[in-house]
């Protein structure tokens, strides 16, 4: 008898993972401007699938999501990636690939956030981001092939997984090279642009009684 449980379990795990991120976001208070910026970034990432659609595999979405995570942090990065997948599929067509695209792009954004946290915003490392973008092309393909392999291929062995991966290796390679090129050509400029918008979003409040003292201290620092 063929085991079908793994396919179901994997789907449940992926849906639970995506759901827990969304639940975390539900409990996390965010300002209307933050909401609007995340929605706009997700729309941009989703829309960027269209202009390069003529070349299968070439899409700047992964690179944009990675950069968003790098600047805004891991959870906003995940939200941008997963929303980009979900909303762009509203126009391109939903399918069994949607939850896997949501988790793959979400994790790319999360990974960008982790890189940003480790490196710090001031020590921007172009090559680290370029290599991360390159590898995410292949990781994205590996994640998307995973459910296909679990559900429709038997036996579940390494060689059968590699055979399933080989059918799409060309698209994954184009995706990876495209990501690396986009990051090399546009990465630094987009990070500067997004960082500027992030600073504009950051609002710190001071109690009125401390205001006088803080202003004096700030002035002293400037002098």
């Amino acid at each position: 008898m063929v085991n079908t449980q793994w396919s179901l379990y994997s789907l449940i795990i992926v849906l639970a993972a995506v759901g827990s991120f969304y639940l975390w976001y539900e409990r996390h208070s965010s300002s209307p401007k933050e909401v609007a910026v995340i929605a706009t970034l997700a729309a941009l990432a989703g829309l960027s699938r269209i202009p390069f659609a003529a070349v299968p595999g070439l899409q700047p979405t992964t690179f944009l999501v990675l950069i968003c995570g790098y600047v805004f942090g891991a959870v906003p990065g995940f939200m941008v990636g997963s929303l980009a997948a979900l909303t762009s599929n509203l126009f391109l067509g939903q399918g069994p690939w949607t939850p896997w695209q949501m988790i793959a792009w979400g994790l790319a954004g999360f990974c960008g956030g982790v890189i940003g946290r480790i490196k710090g915003k001031k020590s921007f490392s172009r090559w680290l981001l370029v290599s991360a973008a390159f590898f995410w092309g292949f990781i994205f393909g590996a994640i998307l092939n995973f459910w296909h392999w679990l559900t429709f291929v038997y036996p579940l062995t390494l060689s059968s997984y590699l055979a399933a991966m080989l059918t799409g290796i060309w698209f994954d390679a184009v995706h990876s090279v495209g990501n690396a090129l986009f990051t090399m050509l546009l990465g630094e400029e987009l990070i500067k642009l997004l960082s500027r918008f992030k600073r504009r979003l950051t609002v710190s409040s001071l109690p009125v009684e401390r205001l006088g003292r803080e202003v004096i201290k700030e002035n002293e620092k400037i002098i």
């Binding site: 976001y25 995340i38 929605a39 729309a43 929303l83 909303t87 509203l90």
Partner: peptide, 9 residues
């Protein structure tokens, strides 16, 4: 968030 994204695309 989803509604805003879908509207923005």
């Amino acid at each position: 968030l989803l509604a805003l994204t879908a509207k923005t695309i």
